[in-house]
Each structure stands twice: as C-alpha cells, then as structure tokens.
Simulated assay, not measured.
Amino acid sequence: MSQPDVSGTGSAERLGLKPGMIVMESGYDEDVDDTLRDRVVEVVGDENVVDEDTDEVVDVVLLWYRDGDGDLADVLVDSIAPLADDGYIWLLTPKRGRDNYVEPSDIAEAASIAGLSQTSIAAVGPDWGAARLVGRKSSGGKR
C-alpha cells in the first residue's frame, strides 16, 4: 500500500504561489521533494523558476536547508537580497526524525538575526516542512 501524496495537488497553493510569480530556488540537492518542485513549476511556470544566481527581483524564495548547510542566519540574509518588498521566503527543512533536521529554535534565532519574522508553517511533503519568513515591517516604511 502506498503512502498518501501529501505534497501533490495543493502544496504550491499552500505556499501561496500563483501563476506568474517569480520564484528563486536555493539549496537544491538530490534529497529535495521533486513532487513539490514539479508542482511549483506547474503553478508559476517553468520560465518563472530561477536559480540563486539570478539578477531578477523575486516574489518568493524557496530555500532548501539542512542542518550542516552553513550558518542559517547568513543563508537567510543572502536570500533576502533578491526579494521584492512584499516578497517572502519559504524555508524548507527536513521534518523531525529525518536526517539533518533543523530545530525550530534554531530557525527562530536565525530568522531574528536576519531581520525576519516567521508567520506560518506548512507541511509540504512526507520529508519536508516549511516555515514562511517575512521581513519585519518598519514604522513608516516605504510603500
């Protein structure tokens, strides 16, 4: 009996992705959830998924991160640079019990150092969870 496909239809929508959005993917490796990646491409369009070397301003960063991938705060700061003013980061990490699991407290600390706030979490596949991170709003900031 096969396991239910929890990362199939609806996963990209749970991440708030819509057709035409520019999505930068970072941290890709052989262990990523290909079903989720395929669904992201289906929703936003193949031409709208760019890699971390892009010069484009992006709406969303999909950041695959595992314990041991370097300093998370530094990785998050690097991910902020290409984001549009109203853009956000989905930090994708292995679920509890999986290899290279990242503690929620480590995510919270790194996000705070990078000037980000966690607004929600989502289950996006059998092996990966996601935390939505946004820039902190400054009082009287730009529009």
Rank of each mutant, 00 (worst) to 15 (best):
Leu36Tyr: 02
Gln118Asp: 03
Trp128Asn: 03
Leu76His: 09
Ala111Cys: 11
Gly45Val: 01
Val40Phe: 00
Leu91Trp: 11
Asp51Trp: 08
Ile107Cys: 05
Ala114Phe: 06
Val102Thr: 07
Met24Val: 03
Thr54Gly: 13
Asn100Gln: 13
Asp67Val: 02
Glu42Asp: 14
Asp86Met: 07
Leu72Tyr: 03
Val75Ala: 09
Ser117Ala: 15
Leu62Val: 04
Gly70Asn: 07
Asp85Ser: 13
Asp78Ile: 01
Ile80Ala: 03
Val43Ile: 04
Asp31Arg: 12
Asn48Ser: 12
Asp86Thr: 08
Asp59Cys: 05
Pro94Arg: 09
Arg136Asn: 10
Asp67Asn: 06
Asp29Gln: 10
Asp31Asn: 14
Gly125Asn: 08
Leu83Gly: 07
Asn100Phe: 12
Thr93Leu: 13
Asp78Pro: 04
Tyr65Lys: 01
Val43Leu: 02
Ile80Arg: 15
Trp64Val: 00
Glu109Tyr: 11
Arg66Lys: 14
Gly27Thr: 07
Leu76Ile: 07
Glu30Val: 15
Leu133Cys: 13
Pro104Arg: 07
Thr119His: 07
Val44Cys: 01
Tyr28Cys: 12
Gly115Trp: 06
Thr54Asn: 13
Ile89Gln: 12
Val44Ala: 03
Gly115Arg: 07
Trp90Gln: 13
Thr93Glu: 12
Leu63Cys: 01
Trp64Pro: 00
Val32Ala: 11
Asp99Tyr: 08
Arg132Glu: 11
Ser26Leu: 10
Gly135Met: 09
Gly27Lys: 08
Met24Glu: 12
Ala110Met: 04
Asp34Gly: 07
Leu116Gln: 05
Leu62Thr: 02
Ala110Gln: 04
Trp90Thr: 14
Ser120Val: 15
Leu72Trp: 02
Trp90Glu: 09
Met24Asn: 03
Ser117Lys: 14
Leu83Lys: 05
Val50Arg: 07
Asp69Val: 08
Asp67Ile: 03
Arg39Thr: 01
Val124Glu: 05
Val57Glu: 15
Arg96Asn: 13
Thr54Phe: 13
Ala111Met: 02
Asp67Cys: 00
Pro104Gly: 05
Ser117Ile: 12
Arg39Ile: 00
Arg66Leu: 01
Ile89Asp: 12
Pro94Asn: 09
Asp85Leu: 10
Arg96Asp: 14
Val75Phe: 02
Asp31Gln: 08
Ile80Thr: 12
Leu76Val: 05
Arg96Ala: 13
Ser105Arg: 02
Asp71Glu: 05
Gln118Asn: 05
Lys95Tyr: 11
Val50His: 03
Tyr88Val: 09
Thr119Asp: 10
Ala111Leu: 10
Glu52His: 11
Leu92Tyr: 15
Met24Asp: 02
Val50Leu: 07
Ala123Ser: 15
Thr93Cys: 15
Thr54Ala: 13
Ala131Ser: 15
Pro126Gly: 10
Glu47Met: 09
Asn48Asp: 08
Val102Cys: 08
Val41Met: 02
